[in-house]
Simulated scan of single mutants.
Amino acid sequence: MFLDFFGLREQPFGVTPDPRYLYLGPAHREALASLYYGIEANRGFLSLIARPGMGKTTLLFHLLAKFDHTARTAFLFQTQCSSREFMRFLLAEIGIESESQDFVKMHEQFNRCLVQEARAGKRFIVVIDEAQNLDASVLETVRLLSDFETPQAKLLQIILVGQPGLADKLATPALVQLRQRITSVSGLSPLTREETCRFMDHRLQVAGHKGARLFSPEAQELIAQVSEGIPRQINNYCFHALSLACAMRKKIVDAAMVREVTHDLDIHRFVSEVGSSAHRHAGLNGNGNGNGNGNGIGDPFHPVEELPGVVGEYVSSAPVADNAAK
């Protein structure tokens, strides 16, 4: 490990969604504000849609921490399931072991829990990650959960989170009732070159770095370019660049090291001739954005447009683009 070599307390470019490392550029800050105010206003259904690797889960963990003492929360990842399985996962997430397989009885159990939390003065927040994987029938089950309410307020706040394929599903006529209930749709856009540099610096600071810069300006510029501003890819390039610098006993990562790492991580070096031909064909005959997969998600080297966020202001303890770097 390079931690001792660079004077770091912990891994600055890890793969877990640690909220301490959240960097709020303008798009992330706006999305966080929209979700926060949506929950505060008891708006019911909210949505966050962005391409893979944009930091959706990290942002949501940070958001839920804001409601630690005022809400009961459930975070669901298992989205390739039936409606019955979905309800079982939901009950298990909130600590209720359902002995019954009966769908109606599971609904009743969940409703009792909602009422109990409401009487205690707490909100109930359910986050459904990777929601683009949910079948239309399960999304209809999710919609029906929003019927749990009193004349004065919604008993349940639901955040649907997913990749652009979720927007494709929600736009279908079959899900018009669910779509009409979604009161806020937020998106995340890639970091700019300047934001990428701040993102890197912030993560190093959180990890305990002090002193001279570990990345040359040219190295940071190149990482911003090859990562296309996607946080997960920035972390990956930075991790491998620091590992290479440590192996070479160099205290500063330069552009040559980043170029070597970029070459080493290029999966296209190993694509077969058949796979390469299919990839080119999909790019030419796909859904009009060059990625050819029909769900609005490109590979790491072919970005697509993001949904715009909803305007909002939110003062957070996490660093923002104006005063911190990550």
Rank of each mutant, 00 (worst) to 15 (best):
N235F: 14
I128S: 09
T150W: 13
Y23K: 00
L175M: 08
F5N: 05
M54L: 15
A33D: 01
F89E: 07
A27F: 10
V138K: 03
F6S: 01
E260K: 07
L166K: 02
N293E: 06
G292W: 11
G25A: 14
E93W: 03
G162S: 04
E149K: 08
L8H: 01
M1Q: 07
H209D: 00
M257P: 00
E218N: 09
S216P: 05
T58A: 14
S83H: 01
Y36T: 07
P231I: 04
M257S: 06
G290F: 13
R193L: 12
E313G: 15
N285M: 10
G298N: 10
R123S: 14
P190H: 06
G208C: 09
H263C: 06
R203L: 12
R181I: 08
Q11R: 12
G296D: 09
T196Q: 05
L139R: 05
H302C: 02
T183L: 06
R112Y: 06
P308V: 06
P303L: 12
E85H: 08
S34I: 03
S83Y: 02
G275Q: 10
N133T: 12
G162W: 02
R203K: 12
E108H: 15
N293S: 02
C246H: 11
A167G: 12
F75M: 09
A92W: 09
V271K: 08
L284A: 14
E305I: 11
S216T: 14
G211N: 04
D266G: 04
A171T: 05
L24C: 11
T58S: 14
A27K: 08
A50R: 00
V176K: 03
T73C: 11
F89G: 00
E40A: 15
T192H: 06
P26A: 10
S100I: 01
A71C: 01
F13D: 00
S146E: 13
I39Q: 02
A255R: 08
K56H: 02
L60H: 11
P12R: 04
L145M: 09
I128C: 03
Q80M: 08
A245D: 05
L144I: 09
R9Q: 12
G229C: 10
R193Y: 15
A153R: 15
L76A: 02
S184W: 02
Y237D: 01
M1L: 04
V261S: 03
N291M: 05
E99L: 07
V126G: 04
H268S: 13
P303S: 08
K169F: 11
R213S: 14
P26S: 09
K122P: 13
A167F: 03
L188E: 01
A278W: 12
L32C: 07
E149H: 14
P17R: 13
R51D: 15
F89Q: 01
I96K: 04
L170V: 09
K210I: 10
L64A: 05
S276I: 00
K56W: 10
D254P: 08
S100Q: 03
V115H: 11
V271C: 11
